[in-house]
Nucleic acid binder design. Structure first.
Lengths: 156, 156
DNA sequence: AGTTATTAAATTGTGCACAATCAAATTTTT
DNA sequence: AAAAATTTGATTGTGCACAATTTAATAACT
């Protein structure tokens, strides 16, 4: 009897110990999946705009405040120059932005929207509503989710 | 006076129209940031394990069910063979898994853990608690967030 | 049996993401 | 002013992600 209890207890312990490694118990994994699914959702609606999701994020930053440095855009999007420099070069080739060094401080590079980049805003504004209708969450749930996710990333 | 109201109304309209393009109003952007921050968090604790987050996910799947096909692992992780094939090759080189074609159906490849891959579980089990302590969310908030995120990705 | 369709991986090519390093300009300190 | 530290971006190299295509094997159909 004592033996039986011992075995049973140890099995429980083993189960609990490794449960944290089960995919369905993770918080991180579904966030990782959600992020990629969202980007795929955007790609579906970008269609003929010929931009990627990170490029769309850069445009959103610039539509709010044009003429920003690489550094400032990076801070806003939590991305470093190793990611942004080649991304900006691709956007420059597409004619969406310009890149120019500042006179005052030759280290900094100023990113500006071209007219084409500005005009894209009119098409872009149609996209979020299309994505929204694919969501299975209610308005309230979206609000709660948004608040919790922001709390998660603003931990510093 | 009529003119004033008109201008005012149109400004309101413009503001509302483009508000959905502001970064801070987005749901998608913080999820995208959270995903990357979580992966960085894992990298911090992987240390000498010499694995990446996607490789860690594959290991988690195999620790739950060893001997799975490329296809099944892909379904579990929402990843396709274009991502997984080179990833498995890197894991094979590191000696974490083996890759073998099935006799019954030569199209499918069976992925199995090596002893080294199985042993990694002992180190891996220490990681989630370390990450958990970096979180600023309460137990309840984590529960709610997990439920909402799962609801978001299981829409089909 | 022979053709067609389907399925499973692999391959190819592009675009992030990021750690680590480097180079140049600026600021701070002595 | 000269030396040291800091800041800003660019560069290099590795590893995902994923769309699109290809190859090979199996299943379905006539």
């Amino acid at each position: 009897m004592h033996n039986l209890i011992t075995i049973f207890a140890s099995e429980i312990e083993t189960m609990v110990k490794y449960d944290i490694l089960k995919l369905n118990n993770q918080l991180c994994f579904p966030i990782y999946v959600a992020s990629r699914e969202i980007i795929q959702g955007y790609n579906k609606y970008f269609g003929d705009l010929d931009i990627t999701y990170p490029q769309y994020l850069v445009l959103m930053v610039l539509w709010e405040d044009d003429e920003m440095t690489v550094n400032n855009i990076g801070k806003r999007l939590h991305l470093d120059s190793g990611t942004l420099t080649p991304l900006f070069k691709r956007m420059e080739i597409k004619g969406l932005i310009t890149r120019n060094r500042c006179r005052q401080d030759e280290r900094t590079v100023r990113i500006c929207l071209t007219d084409k980049g500005k005009q894209l805003k009119e098409e872009a504004v149609k996209i979020p509503p299309q994505l929204a209708k694919d969501l299975t969450l209610s308005e309230d749930e979206i609000g709660v989710l948004k608040r919790l996710i922001y709390k998660l990333i603003n931990k510093e």
